[in-house]
Design a protein around this nucleic acid. Structure first.
Lengths: 139, 139
DNA sequence: ACTGAATTTAGAATCATTCTAAGTTTAGTC
DNA sequence: GACTAAACTTAGAATGATTCTAAATTCAGT
């Protein structure tokens, strides 16, 4: 007999399916000092699991994003970045040095309600990017 | 002697360098019923200038964005879109049908000042995208 | 017409990402 | 402990958007 009861099968959320590969990808993201591209994640994971395939890193990133263990961040152009910060937040992108900092814009929940009222559009997700110059790059 | 005086050379802004190709690209964007990808622009421009090269469309788009005649819009993933609307504005993207609508989030100027005060970051540009369901796709 | 700069062209190259098909691992069953 | 189907990984090809390159063309100013 299965270790899971009927109640578990029907009402419990699916537990994380963390294979060795997915675990390694997740660890790299969680230990990173900044947001990483798939390429950077691949390079770092390869130090732990030398045989891992590029496609596996992409599969793992898709899975981990799906189950909410990491956040995929699109910054206008260039490669997608992966972020261990799971809270809703925004990004400051320096156009000089490229550094990406987290920033939390207040009251966006209220804005979503406002949009629903005035336009009928139901926004589920917000991507807010500020492009400019970081303190270091202003001299 | 040049038709431009010294004063013009030193203080007047450079006039638009609108070649036939750039003009055609600009016209296509201005006459479009929606935001277009480079591919869509290429297809439409080709009906007027059958010989135009793909790279020329990209060059024209870079030039026209640079001089502020069109706006490049990045919507998270997928190809860049080009927009005739030159005013600062935001986008509502339907995750079901993909339709993109313009929307203007109020008071972002105030937010930029706030960010400058609290973080020292000087934001010059904001990209704000709302992803969700448009009225049609909510049934 | 002459000259240098800017532009266009065609196609190759690049980069991020997705796809494919075959092999491997895993969980659950006899 | 072997059997099976499902899930996962692998290697490499394929795709799609964009940029690069080098040669040919056009243009502005003399």
């Amino acid at each position: 007999m299965s270790a899971r009861t009927r109640a578990e099968r029907t009402t419990m959320p699916t537990p994380l399916q963390l294979t060795r590969q997915r675990e390694a990808v997740l660890a790299v993201i969680q230990e990173a000092e900044k947001h990483l591209t798939a390429q950077e994640i691949y390079d770092r994971v390869r130090q732990r699991l030398p045989g891992i395939a590029y496609a596996t890193v992409y599969n793992a990133l898709a899975y981990l994003s799906q189950v909410g263990q990491v956040q995929a961040v699109h910054l206008g152009s260039g490669a997608t970045l992966y972020d261990r910060n799971l809270a809703r937040h925004d990004h400051l992108v320096c156009r000089q040095c490229g550094k990406v900092s987290d920033y939390c814009f207040p009251d966006l929940d209220r804005a979503l309600e406002e949009i629903a009222h005035t336009t009928g559009f139901r926004a589920q997700k917000v991507e807010l990017i500020f492009i400019g110059l970081c303190p270091d790059c202003q001299r």
